[in-house]
Simulated scan of single mutants.
Amino acid sequence: MTGGVIRLFLGLAATAFLAAAPVLAIAQEFAPSGGAPAVGLDLPSFSSFAPAVDPGAPLALTTGGEITLSAKLTEEGADISRGLVWRVFGQAAGPDGKLPLIASAQGGTAVFNLAPGGYLVHASYGRAGATKRISVGRENKSESLVLDAGGLKLDATLAGGVRIPPAKLKFSIYEAEPDAGSERALIIPDVSPNSVVRLNSGTYHIVSTYGSVNAVIRSDIRIEAGKLTEATVEHHAAELTLKLVREAGGEAIADTSWSVLSSSGDPVREVVGAFASLVLAEGDYTIIAKNKDRIYQRDFTVVGGRNQDVEVLATEANAVIDMEGAD
């Protein structure tokens, strides 16, 4: 089979939190589909990124049968050669109610020497994982786990395909559906653009945030086993620099505090500084500047993809409150 990726382009309005549908999708096999992780096992909660035991320590307390463990993305796929974290648990809970960790290893295929008996084996590959119950005897044997997992790479642009600076862009990955009466469970926060995240196959809810105010896009994306999904969302937003000036094109006045209100009058953001930079979603706003005992305001429309300086003139025409004259 030939390798490949799934590419999705999601065009969305920045002021609405709507599930997005792909505009463009191209899919090829990255590895053959199929397989599913072991299900129906009642396991304690443990982190996919818990540190392994000391590599110099023995993998088991008692010499017994040798077992070789391997994992793959799909039933017909090749064994994963690196990036795995293996954990072997005993089946009897300890005094704390948790299953004891017997041995662990990192890398690809792992070999353990375990005392005869039953164990639970968990393989983690990024945030993808699978668990399997195994039985160890005196004879050497092999076991394989199918992760049923794929990869996800996320990015975002402005209208017209303009790239967003990576430092101002982040993603969060949530479960697709919230539990009854609760919010969606957060799986991975603060994912950097163009980084590959490994996940079990299924649908996930993705939140893309440009800046730190209200430029937010939400979409649902499906991950297929053995495939890399590349998804790009489009933000309708712009980066603005606010300046209070005495005349058009003049120097910015220091010690100015700013309030940004939505078209309905709701507070959006407050910031302090002669040059106040922020990213806002496309729409209409009222900008209020306070300097010493005077307050000035200006109505302004943000156009997606049009970054610019916004000047508020410190004139009588724009002054709305004289604090010294107020009761």
Rank of each mutant, 00 (worst) to 15 (best):
S144M: 12
A225P: 10
A130E: 07
A248V: 00
L145H: 11
G151Q: 09
T209H: 15
A130C: 10
V197D: 02
S172E: 08
D220Q: 06
D190W: 12
V207Y: 01
S208L: 04
S219Y: 01
I188Q: 05
T203P: 04
I253T: 02
H235E: 04
I206A: 06
S208C: 03
I188H: 03
P116M: 07
G249R: 09
V146R: 13
K153G: 05
T232S: 11
G202I: 00
A176I: 00
V162F: 11
A238E: 01
A231Y: 01
E143F: 15
L147S: 05
V196D: 05
S182P: 02
S192G: 11
G117Q: 08
H205W: 08
H236N: 04
S144T: 11
V191Q: 13
V207N: 03
T241Q: 14
A225Y: 07
P178L: 08
V121D: 04
E177L: 15
S208K: 02
D179N: 07
S208I: 00
R133Y: 13
Y210C: 02
T131C: 07
E234W: 06
R198P: 06
R198N: 14
P116D: 10
L120D: 11
A185H: 15
S172K: 04
Y174F: 15
P189S: 06
G126A: 08
D148G: 15
S142E: 10
K153W: 02
I134Y: 09
L145Y: 09
I217V: 11
R246E: 03
A128G: 05
Y210P: 05
E177S: 15
E224W: 11
V121T: 02
L152F: 01
V146T: 12
A176D: 10
E177W: 13
L169N: 02
R218P: 01
L120S: 12
Y204G: 08
V216Q: 00
L147K: 05
E183I: 01
S195C: 03
P165E: 13
V162K: 14
